[in-house]
C-alpha cells in the first residue's frame, strides 16, 4: 500500500534539505544560477523581500507563469510562497505541483486570525517562527518544516539571530524540565502539552528548522549554522548583491563548512558588494514582517 502526504514523507523532504541553502528566485535565469551554485532548492516568487519592502502595496502569490518557468528550468525542488491563511493560493500551488509551500509573512497576510490548516494538504509546508510557541502552533497545524523569521529584506542578521537563539533556548529549557513542569510551560508558550512532551523526548524540534530573514554574507550563513540552524534561506542576499553567482556559491560553501573559518575568510574575498542593509530600528513597527502571524 502506497501512502502519499504522510508526515514522514512531508517532514522527510525537509530532512533532505539539511545543511543546504534555499534561494529566492524571480525567474528561470536566477533559478539556474542558484542550482549551479549548489542550492538545495529554490523559492519562486515575484519580488524578493527587499523589493516588496521598497515598493509597498499588497504582496501576493507569484504569477503562476513565473513558478512554472522556474519549475521547468531546474531539477532541484521548487518552493513557492502563499499568503498566510490564503487557502486558495496554497491549493493553486499544490495543483501546480510545487514541492513545498511557504506560508509566508513576507507576503501580505490574507487572514490575520487563522493560519492554514496544513494537515489537509498533500504538499508539505514550511512556516516562519520567532519562538517555540509559534513553532508549536505551526507544527500543530501541520507544518513539516520551520524557519525562524528574522526580518526579511533587510540584509541585517540581528533578528534572525534573535529568533534562532530564542527558539533553541526554549527547546533546551523544555528538554531539561521535569515532567510536572510541562503543562504550565505549555500554557505559557501557547503550545500543546503533547508537543512539549515530544520535544522533551526527542531532545529537539520534531521538524527541521532553517534560518531566514537577513542572511547577506557567507559569514552570516555560517553564523546561523553555528547557532543551530539546520540550513539557511537566502532571500534578497543573493540577487540583490553585486555578484549573485559569487555570493550564491560562497554562501553554499560557508553553510557546509561553517566552522572552517580560514575557508570562510578565503571565500569571502573579492565577492563584490553585499546587498545594502537596513537598520531594524529604521523600520516602523507596523512594517516589520516578523510581526505577521502569531
Amino acid at each position: 500500500m502506497n501512502q502519499q502526504g504522510t508526515n514522514r514523507v512531508k517532514r522527510g523532504m525537509a530532512e533532505m534539505q539539511k545543511g543546504g541553502v534555499i534561494m529566492d528566485v524571480v525567474n528561470a535565469e536566477q533559478a539556474r544560477i542558484a542550482e549551479a551554485a549548489g542550492a538545495t532548492a529554490v523559492m519562486a516568487l515575484e519580488r524578493v523581500p527587499s523589493d516588496i519592502r521598497r515598493d509597498g502595496g499588497v504582496a501576493r502569490m507569484a504569477d503562476p507563469r513565473i513558478t512554472e518557468e522556474v519549475m521547468k528550468a531546474v531539477s532541484i525542488p521548487v518552493m513557492a510562497k502563499a499568503r498566510i491563511g490564503h487557502i486558495v493560493e496554497a491549493r493553486v500551488l499544490e495543483a501546480m505541483g510545487v514541492d513545498y509551500i511557504d506560508e509566508s509573512e513576507v507576503l501580505t497576510p490574507a487572514d490575520e486570525e487563522f493560519h492554514l490548516l496544513k494537515d489537509r494538504f498533500t504538499v508539505p509546508f514550511v512556516c516562519g517562527c520567532r519562538n517555540l510557541g509559534e513553532a508549536a502552533r505551526r507544527i500543530g497545524e501541520g507544518a513539516s518544516m520551520l524557519r525562524t523569521k528574522g526580518e526579511p529584506g533587510t540584509g541585517n542578521i540581528v533578528e534572525a539571530v534573535r529568533h534562532m537563539r530564542q527558539v533553541n533556548s526554549e527547546v533546551l529549557k523544555v528538554v531539561h524540565m521535569s515532567d510536572d513542569e510541562l503543562m504550565t510551560e505549555a500554557r505559557n508558550l501557547g503550545a500543546s502539552y503533547e508537543f512539549l512532551r515530544e520535544v522533551k523526548s526527542l531532545g529537539r524540534l520534531p521538524v527541521v528548522n532553517f534560518a531566514a530573514g537577513g542572511v547577506a554574507t557567507p559569514a552570516d550563513a555560517a553564523l546561523m549554522m553555528e547557532l543551530g540552524a539546520d540550513g539557511v534561506f537566502v532571500g534578497s542576499g543573493i540577487f540583490k548583491s553585486e555578484s549573485p553567482e559569487n555570493f550564491a556559491r560562497a554562501i553554499v560553501e560557508a553553510t557546509t563548512h561553517y566552522q572552517d573559518y580560514q575557508l570562510i575568510a578565503d571565500l569571502s574575498k573579492n565577492l563584490g558588494v553585499a546587498m545594502h542593509g537596513i537598520e531594524i530600528s529604521a523600520i516602523a513597527a507596523g512594517e516589520r514582517m516578523q510581526e505577521r502571524g502569531w
Partner: peptide, 15 residues
C-alpha cells in the same frame, strides 16, 4: 533515473 516517481506531491511510503 532521477525523480522518477514524480515531484514531492507524488512522494510516498510503502512496505
Amino acid at each position: 533515473e532521477r525523480n522518477s516517481f514524480g515531484r514531492q506531491i507524488d512522494s510516498f511510503e510503502a512496505d
